[in-house]
Amino acid sequence: MPTPAYQSLAADLRDRIMAGEFRPGDRLPVEPELSAAYGVSRSTVREALRLLASQNLIATLRGVSGGSFVVAPRPEQISDYLRTSLDLLAVDARITVDQLLEIRDLLEVPATGLAALRRSESDLADLRATLFDPAALEPEQMYEPNKRFHAVLLQASGNPLVEVVARPVFQLLDERFLRGRAPGRFWHEVDRDHREILAYVEAGDEEGAREAAHAHLGRLRPTYLSIDRTR
């Protein structure tokens, strides 16, 4: 099937944006200009602009000074887009829990090592604040501090791209395969591992932090696989 005209137009505009012809904050040519330049109807132009807006590449403002402007994507927008795509792949059974755990190990273990080298005192305080006593809390109360611990580790790595890519993988695993379904002993292991990782990060021990993070993710694997088999 031939590509619809609005998709072809959107693809060309996207390429021009990526090439830097239109930079964040620039206004795209108005609808009549785009219609004339590409030899398409204004309705085709509007559909193309709507497609680019849905991809967070442009924002359309109304009014005298309005128009379609190139936006500077925020890291959380990219993470959200990746998360949606991962969700769809998981639903379609084209991505397994083993594959998710592998990519999480590839991303989070080096990030934890970087956190040991680059963490600030504020990062350490935030990590300590996520620690919890599994004996004093219900399982549902431990989910958020657990998620926060890993989010702070990614942040402390000092590389925002690691955060962008790793966060959706962690969220998918934690929400789809873990929330409310992990056995009680699981949280005691998580607490112990988090305290060990934190100790290495506090000491600035890159290798120790990496090894502790790798061991932690390895210990999570049987629980994730067990939950996955019962879904």
Rank of each mutant, 00 (worst) to 15 (best):
P4Y: 10
Q7I: 14
D15Y: 04
D15W: 05
R16L: 14
M18F: 13
R23Q: 15
P24K: 05
G25Q: 07
P32W: 12
Y38N: 05
R46W: 02
L57Y: 08
L57E: 13
L57M: 15
I58E: 03
T60L: 01
G67Q: 04
S68A: 15
S68M: 03
F69K: 05
V70W: 07
V70L: 09
P73I: 04
P75R: 04
E76D: 13
I78W: 02
I78V: 14
L82K: 00
D87Y: 13
D87P: 00
L88P: 00
A93I: 06
R94P: 00
L101G: 10
I103S: 13
L106P: 00
L106H: 13
L106W: 11
L107K: 11
P110Y: 12
P110D: 12
L114P: 01
A116P: 03
R118L: 12
R118D: 01
S120H: 03
S122I: 11
D123Q: 04
D123L: 03
A125T: 13
L127R: 09
T130D: 02
T130A: 03
L131T: 14
A136P: 01
A136Q: 12
P145T: 07
P145G: 07
K147F: 10
K147M: 14
R148H: 12
R148K: 14
F149V: 05
F149D: 02
V152A: 11
L153N: 02
L154E: 04
V162L: 15
P168H: 08
D174L: 09
E175N: 07
R176F: 06
G180K: 02
R181T: 12
G184M: 07
R185Q: 13
W187Q: 02
H188I: 00
V201E: 08
E202P: 08
G204F: 10
D205K: 11
D205H: 12
E206V: 12
E207P: 00
G208M: 06
E211P: 01
A213I: 05
A215T: 15
H216Y: 15
G218C: 07
L220I: 04
L220W: 14
Y224L: 15
T230S: 11
R231P: 00
R231V: 06
